[in-house]
């Protein structure tokens, strides 16, 4: 490849970006109700193995397997979130790490799916399917956030007690957010399993849970787009750090440390998206002055 061709990632990297974006959003949905989960790789593992068994052992079509994965993730997420309702903050984070360790150990000792040697035979996910999944999820979250439910997520995060007093069913909202997040992680796992072709319990360890939190916090925890940007950047960085050989982990680590010290709110915060929206609006206004005047006139008539 010559020129800037090296900047275009390989097909497998493109799919990895998609999967990581969905993982980042799964963490993002949970954190948007103030629930810090560091065990999402458990849900990812369940989705990956669930969908894998569905396509390989039961010869079900891929689409059905993906839906099964989402269902498994949602169900298990609900199951986990009930005891998790009693614990909050760092206690919740630790509890989810515990769940992740238990699930990982379960798959290591579950011979039906190969135990520690792993499970293979899944195939069939293409870049376009991953891209479609990402677009669907983006649309879903975007709609969710502008709905009444999305607003109540925000209210629960800001102050649970106030939200409760206002008549919101905080239990329902927190369980729902956790289940949605778990289902998304599960979907990501199912997609991952069907293009990586081979899965093993150690693919879903503590690190696999931590990485999406990096994406979200680096990109920005306040918006959907920040989380996605973080996933894209941190998936691509290792590719471009390849000339550094083994040293890239050190550079990567120090970059995150520096980032947290100087911009803890992440690259894209709400104020950034507002600025972009404003800039876009003024651009449109400058292009179409007539329309703006008409609107202003309409507003003026409303006032008078």
């Amino acid at each position: 490849m010559d020129g800037l061709g090296f900047l275009i990632p390989k097909e497998s990297t493109q799919m990895m970006i998609g999967v990581n974006i969905i993982l980042a959003w799964s963490f993002y949905i949970m954190i948007s109700t103030g629930q810090l989960s560091l065990g999402n790789s458990a849900f990812m593992a369940l989705g990956a193995y669930g969908a894998g068994v569905a396509t390989v052992n039961f010869k079900l079509p891929l689409l059905v397997a993906l839906i099964i994965a989402i269902a498994i993730g949602g169900l298990f997420g609900t199951l986990v979130s009930f005891p998790a309702l009693r614990v909050r903050g760092m206690y919740l984070a630790m509890m989810t790490i515990g769940v992740e360790e238990v699930v990982q150990s379960f798959f290591r000792n579950f011979d039906y799916v190969g135990g520690a040697t792993g499970f293979r035979g899944m195939k069939g996910v293409t870049v376009w399917m991953v891209a479609l999944a990402v677009v669907l999820m983006a649309f879903f979250i975007w709609r969710l956030e502008s709905s009444r439910l999305g607003r109540s997520f925000e209210a629960v995060r800001d102050d649970e007690m106030v939200a409760n007093t206002m008549g919101l069913n905080t239990t329902y909202i927190k369980v729902l957010a956790f289940a949605i997040g778990a289902a998304m992680a599960s979907l990501a796992g199912a997609l991952y399993a069907h293009f990586i072709l081979f899965i093993a319990p150690e693919h879903f360890d503590f690190w696999q849970s931590i990485l999406p939190t990096f994406y979200v916090i680096l990109g920005g925890v306040q918006t959907l787009w920040g989380a996605a940007l973080g996933a894209v950047i941190l998936t691509l960085l290792p590719e471009y750090f390849r000339p550094l050989k083994e040293w890239w982990i050190i550079v990567y680590g120090l970059a995150i440390v520096a980032m947290m010290a100087y911009r803890p709110q992440g690259l894209i915060s709400k104020s950034v998206t507002l600025h972009i929206a404003k800039a876009a609006k003024s651009l449109i206004r400058a292009r179409a002055p007539g329309a703006t005047e008409a609107r202003e006139a309409a507003q003026g008539s409303e006032v008078s």
């Binding site: 990096f214 083994e246 982990i249 680590g253 995150i256 440390v257 947290m260 010290a261 803890p264």
Partner: peptide
């Protein structure tokens, strides 16, 4: 990881310490 952190970003040190731990291991 801790000196500069502002109280409103309480997840930041958790992540930057994970990253620093990664650096130490490497």
């Amino acid at each position: 990881c801790f000196r500069r952190v502002k109280p409103e970003y309480h997840f930041a040190p958790a992540l930057s310490t994970v990253a620093l731990g990664m650096v130490i291991v490497e």
